[in-house]
């Protein structure tokens, strides 16, 4: 039983750790783009990659200040959003989806390619760029701290604290925007672009603003992940993360301010709990070793998560915070 409680504690730690911040920020960005504006960005991870490498390259390769790196990462994300949006936002929604998914995969391959190695250090990645950030922590980062029955390094705690502050600020910004007339226009665009055009709104500009804003959130997520792990390699930024963020968003409830945040926390909790919980059950002999061994857990947990998502969509398609009436309107 003690092991089971430990498993819960480990899962809670995952749910509030910097990985969950990373997922939450990706999902907040996707919520802005997909949940409110109806834009299909299937390459959110590309923005995270640019954010992370903006810091990593600036600090470790070019010897610049950490905050200059942050700025470079954000500018790079804005530029990517503009490059993706300019040709595709005048077209049907599908084209943005195609362009973003290709850009995400293309950028990852570019950053790990041999020709980019002088700058990105190829598939080995870059490390040692977060010292300036970790030194800002008001507590001793060398020590380990106990929190909710788990141990945290001082640095992890600092990254998580800053991360959740960013998440709170981002949520506040989204909340402020979507309750304003600006948010009304953006939500209308999700429903029917042509109707909004006929009422004198420049749809293209609104879509671009939503795309850029979501991209900035994605870049911030990438930065938190990079300073949390202390190193960055291109293969950390697999596009599967984009879809994990979509899953978190739908779990929490799309087009709800707190949907992506709670969804991301819960997602990481579930992933970690499926892992540590299963392990403790196997070790206690509750699940016989002939049926499942601890080496299978890493695979089987995603089967469980997939099953859970299917059940969610069947029984609660609006997610945790969503409004069922609203979701059902589409199924006319």
């Amino acid at each position: 039983m003690g092991e089971f409680i430990d498993a819960v504690a480990i899962a809670v730690k995952a749910g509030i750790g910097f990985q969950a911040v990373f997922l939450a920020l990706l999902a907040i960005g996707i919520n802005m783009q997909f949940g409110y504006a109806g834009l299909l960005n299937f390459g959110q991870i590309a923005f995270a990659l640019l954010g992370a490498y903006g810091i990593a390259i600036s600090v470790s390769q070019w010897g610049l200040d950490f905050w200059v790196g942050v700025l470079i990462g954000l500018v790079a994300a804005v530029v990517l959003a503009l490059l993706l949006g300019l040709p595709t936002l005048r077209l049907r929604a599908d084209y943005l989806a195609i362009a973003t998914i290709a850009a995400a995969e293309g950028l990852r391959l570019l950053f790990r390619s041999v020709s980019a190695t002088p700058v990105t250090n190829g598939s080995r990645g870059i490390s040692g760029f977060n010292r300036q950030f970790v030194e800002l922590a008001p507590w001793d980062t060398g020590r380990r701290y106990s929190l909710l029955g788990t141990f945290w390094s001082g640095a992890d705690l600092w990254v998580a604290a800053v991360g959740w502050t960013l998440v709170a600020l981002a949520s506040l910004l989204v909340w402020g925007l979507v309750r304003s007339p600006w948010g009304r226009v953006v939500k209308s665009i999700r429903e029917d672009e042509d109707a909004v055009r006929a009422l004198g709104k420049n749809v293209y500009v609104y879509k671009m603003q939503a795309l850029v804003l979501g991209g900035i959130f994605g870049a911030l997520g990438g930065m938190i992940y990079a300073v949390g792990t202390g190193s960055t390699t291109p293969d950390q930024y697999q596009n599967a993360n984009t879809f994990l963020a979509y899953a978190a968003l739908i779990l929490g409830g799309a087009a709800r301010v707190l949907g992506p945040v709670v969804g991301a926390m819960l997602m990481y909790f579930i992933i970690q709990f499926a892992d540590s919980g299963l392990r403790s059950l196997i070790e206690n002999g509750v699940i016989p070793a002939g049926l499942l061994s601890t080496t299978d857990v890493a695979q089987i947990r995603f089967v469980i998560i997939g099953l859970g998502l299917i059940l969610l969509l069947v029984f609660r398609p609006q997610g945790i915070f969503g409004d069922r009436r609203e979701v059902m309107l589409d199924a006319r």
Binding site: S180, E191, R332
Partner: peptide, 30 residues
């Protein structure tokens, strides 16, 4: 083209022209 997932009143408000709150930055200052 009714905007399904907006309320009737929100549909109406969308039609108004020259709204200050429809630009990104002033939207943040109610």
């Amino acid at each position: 083209k009714a905007l399904s997932r907006l309320t009737v009143l929100q549909n109406m408000l969308l039609g108004a022209q020259g709204q200050k709150g429809e630009s990104f930055f002033s939207a943040l200052v109610p």
